[in-house]
Lab assay of single mutants.
Amino acid sequence: NQASVVANQLIPINTALTLVMMRSEVVTPVGIPADDIPRLVSMQVNRAVPLGTTLMPDMVKGYP
């Protein structure tokens, strides 16, 4: 099973992602692959992302 990117904390709308905000976890449904975490750094979320939420491609501005 492939690990996905999961919010490690509440991420407010328009926040630029940092490594501490994300963790990898095997979840269903599958979200953004954990391998993409380095690419996500400094990209902004377009909505508030609660703790434990799987990051989906449509939540991150400019992804992929």
Rank of each mutant, 00 (worst) to 15 (best):
N1C: 14
Q2D: 15
Q2E: 15
A3Y: 15
A3S: 08
A3K: 07
A3D: 15
A3Q: 09
A3R: 05
A3W: 10
S4E: 01
S4D: 00
S4H: 01
S4Y: 03
S4G: 05
S4L: 02
S4K: 01
V5T: 07
V5R: 02
V5S: 03
V5I: 13
V6Q: 03
V6N: 00
V6W: 00
V6R: 03
V6K: 03
V6C: 04
V6P: 01
A7P: 02
N8E: 06
Q9M: 14
Q9D: 09
Q9W: 06
Q9P: 01
L10W: 08
L10F: 11
L10K: 07
I11E: 02
I11H: 01
I11D: 01
I11S: 01
I11V: 14
I11C: 03
I11P: 01
P12R: 06
P12M: 06
P12K: 06
P12Q: 09
P12N: 08
P12W: 05
I13C: 08
I13A: 09
I13R: 06
I13V: 13
I13G: 09
N14Q: 08
N14W: 07
N14H: 10
T15P: 02
T15M: 10
T15N: 04
T15L: 04
T15F: 05
T15V: 12
T15S: 10
A16K: 09
L17G: 02
L17Q: 00
L17M: 07
T18I: 04
T18G: 04
T18H: 05
T18N: 05
T18D: 06
L19Y: 10
L19E: 10
L19T: 09
L19I: 11
V20E: 11
M21I: 03
M21D: 04
M21L: 06
M21V: 03
M21G: 03
M21A: 04
M22K: 00
M22Q: 01
M22Y: 01
R23E: 04
R23N: 12
R23L: 05
R23S: 08
R23V: 12
S24V: 12
S24P: 07
S24R: 05
E25L: 07
E25I: 05
V26S: 12
V26Q: 08
V27C: 06
T28Y: 08
T28G: 07
T28I: 06
T28C: 15
T28W: 05
T28D: 15
P29E: 07
P29F: 04
P29C: 05
P29Y: 03
P29M: 05
V30N: 13
V30Y: 14
G31H: 01
G31K: 00
G31Y: 02
G31E: 01
G31F: 02
I32Y: 02
I32S: 01
I32M: 03
P33T: 13
P33K: 07
A34R: 04
D35C: 13
D35N: 06
D35K: 06
D35T: 11
D35G: 11
D35Q: 08
D35R: 04
D36H: 15
D36G: 06
D36F: 11
I37L: 12
I37V: 05
P38G: 12
P38M: 15
P38A: 10
P38L: 13
R39V: 11
R39C: 14
R39H: 11
R39K: 15
L40H: 01
L40R: 00
L40E: 01
L40T: 01
L40P: 00
V41L: 14
V41I: 13
V41P: 02
V41H: 04
V41G: 01
V41Q: 07
S42I: 03
S42V: 03
S42T: 10
S42C: 10
M43S: 09
M43I: 04
M43T: 05
M43R: 10
M43K: 12
Q44K: 10
Q44P: 08
Q44L: 07
Q44M: 13
Q44G: 04
Q44W: 09
Q44R: 08
V45T: 11
V45F: 00
V45I: 09
V45E: 02
V45D: 02
N46W: 07
N46M: 15
N46F: 06
N46E: 11
R47Y: 09
R47I: 12
A48V: 13
A48I: 15
A48Q: 14
V49C: 05
P50W: 07
P50Q: 13
P50D: 11
P50E: 15
P50H: 12
P50T: 10
P50I: 09
L51C: 05
L51R: 06
L51N: 12
G52A: 07
T53D: 10
T53N: 09
T53Q: 11
T53Y: 11
T54Y: 00
T54C: 04
L55C: 02
L55D: 02
M56E: 05
M56H: 11
M56K: 09
M56S: 14
P57K: 10
P57D: 05
P57R: 07
P57E: 08
D58Q: 10
D58I: 11
D58H: 11
D58A: 09
D58W: 09
M59I: 04
M59W: 08
M59S: 06
M59P: 01
M59R: 02
V60L: 11
V60Q: 01
K61G: 05
K61E: 13
K61A: 13
G62R: 09
G62Q: 06
G62M: 06
G62A: 13
Y63W: 15
Y63L: 06
Y63D: 06
P64N: 15
P64C: 15
P64G: 15
P64E: 14
P64L: 15
